[in-house]
């Protein structure tokens, strides 16, 4: 078994309104920043032991499917690295 860190990033699907990101962008603009857009995402760093990177990814995928993302509004991606 090898120690991995699976990073799951959950984003709103393209076209789904993101009022929190809109408010954050406005707040940054009030602070004087000039920006063309802002998108927010949730990131989960999951430490787990697995036989190989592929099985670590499969487990992280299942976590995203079953809890971390809501398929109606979210896309997600998974990155797996060996833990340091």
């Amino acid at each position: 078994m090898t120690a991995y860190t699976a990073t799951v990033t959950v984003r709103l699907k393209h076209g789904v309104l993101d009022p929190e990101a809109d408010q954050t962008r406005k707040a940054l603009e009030r602070l004087g920043f000039d920006l063309d857009g802002l998108r927010s995402a949730d990131r989960f760093d999951i430490d787990l032991d697995a036989d190989d990177a592929r099985s670590a990814r499969e487990r992280a995928d299942e976590m995203a499917e079953r809890l971390l993302a809501n398929p109606t509004i979210h896309d997600y991606d998974v990155d797996v690295v060996e833990a340091e």
Binding site: V16, P19, E20, N70
Partner: peptide
């Protein structure tokens, strides 16, 4: 209910935030 799959769709942040 929607998160559990009892009903379709999702309820998320109000347009007004």
């Amino acid at each position: 209910g929607s998160e559990s799959g009892l009903t379709p769709g999702a309820f998320t942040t109000n347009r007004s935030a």
